[in-house]
Computed example of a mutant assay.
Amino acid sequence: MGALDGKVAVITGAARGQGRSHAVALARAGAAVIAIDICAQIPSVEYPMATPDDLAETVAQVRGAGGRIIAAEADVRDLGALRTVISDAESQLGSVDIIIANAGIAPIGLPGQDSVTQFNDVIDVNLRGVYNTVKAAVGSLIAKGSGSIVLVSSTQGLKGTGGHGAGGGLGYACAKHALVGMMRSLANWLGPQGIRVNSIHPTGVATPMIQNAAMEGFFAAADPSVFESTKNLLPVPWVQPEDISNAVLYLVSDTGRYVTGVALPVDAGFSAR
């Protein structure tokens, strides 16, 4: 018996990285998965974003873990598209119990980039996209009077060291901070209806979002204080996606049944520095 047998989870940004890891972890615990990703490039993002092939690999890994999955390409900035995808998937898998709003972008703000466009794109994906994800699926949880929501924020939602004045970095820190307020408001609204809401705050995670040529070039050219501001307290440069998935699994399972309204760092001590 799995901890999530009979549950259905919707996960955004599921084509690779943390999203894929969350999908596989929840599938191993017994959940069926609705995996959503844009699978396309947003022009203001300097690193390559996920592709349809990446999403197909998530499907393969979830099925390899014994899970059921329906995957779809959709942009979290498009509420109507999310509603359609989730409704169609629910007709096959059952109604949603778990929402993991994971999709996000991290434009770096390299010289020559339009900082205003980058800022707006990050806010649209990392903040409005999270709102849209919850809005599109929360009705199913309300109807059941139970469920769990995890908003994937960042250590940059707890500290302001990620902005450095650039459009992308500043927008990232702003959006990730805003998710804490969204989480607490949702927790207060939905708690009396039996629904738990938490946010999770990873330090740097070993995924293509941070392990790419654009990010490496940024740090190579930046003032040493920029690199210093991203160091963890524990002597590791980053954590693995599975480390975040383990915490997500705790938050959405009965093991964490009395945990709500919490901003949970999984950050190798970054926030304590």
Score class of each variant (00 low, 15 high):
residue 17 G to I: 03
residue 184 R to T: 09
residue 185 S to K: 03
residue 76 V to Q: 00
residue 50 A to N: 08
residue 67 G to P: 00
residue 240 Q to F: 06
residue 96 V to P: 02
residue 20 R to L: 13
residue 48 P to W: 08
residue 228 E to W: 05
residue 152 V to Q: 04
residue 264 L to D: 12
residue 105 I to C: 01
residue 124 D to W: 00
residue 115 S to V: 06
residue 38 I to A: 12
residue 138 V to I: 13
residue 76 V to L: 04
residue 100 I to Y: 02
residue 102 N to H: 03
residue 97 D to P: 03
residue 154 S to N: 06
residue 221 A to P: 00
residue 207 T to P: 01
residue 131 Y to G: 04
residue 176 K to M: 02
residue 247 A to P: 04
residue 183 M to N: 06
residue 87 S to N: 08
residue 246 N to I: 00
residue 8 V to E: 04
residue 249 L to D: 03
residue 218 F to G: 06
residue 136 A to K: 08
residue 166 A to I: 10
residue 272 A to I: 15
residue 258 Y to M: 13
residue 72 A to H: 11
residue 7 K to F: 01
residue 178 A to D: 02
residue 167 G to N: 05
residue 213 A to D: 15
residue 2 G to T: 11
residue 239 V to Q: 13
residue 231 K to N: 14
residue 186 L to N: 07
residue 149 I to A: 09
residue 58 T to E: 05
residue 86 I to V: 14
residue 231 K to L: 15
residue 87 S to G: 14
residue 95 S to E: 13
residue 251 L to P: 10
residue 75 D to Q: 05
residue 158 L to F: 04
residue 82 L to A: 02
residue 65 A to K: 12
residue 200 I to Y: 12
residue 206 A to N: 10
residue 172 Y to R: 08
residue 59 V to P: 04
residue 174 C to K: 01
residue 238 W to F: 15
residue 181 G to I: 11
residue 230 T to K: 13
residue 211 Q to H: 13
residue 112 G to M: 09
residue 150 V to C: 04
residue 11 I to K: 02
residue 185 S to Y: 09
residue 110 L to D: 08
residue 48 P to K: 11
residue 190 L to C: 10
residue 108 I to R: 13
residue 254 D to K: 13
residue 211 Q to V: 15
residue 79 L to A: 14
residue 108 I to H: 01
residue 68 R to I: 00
residue 137 A to Q: 11
residue 81 A to F: 07
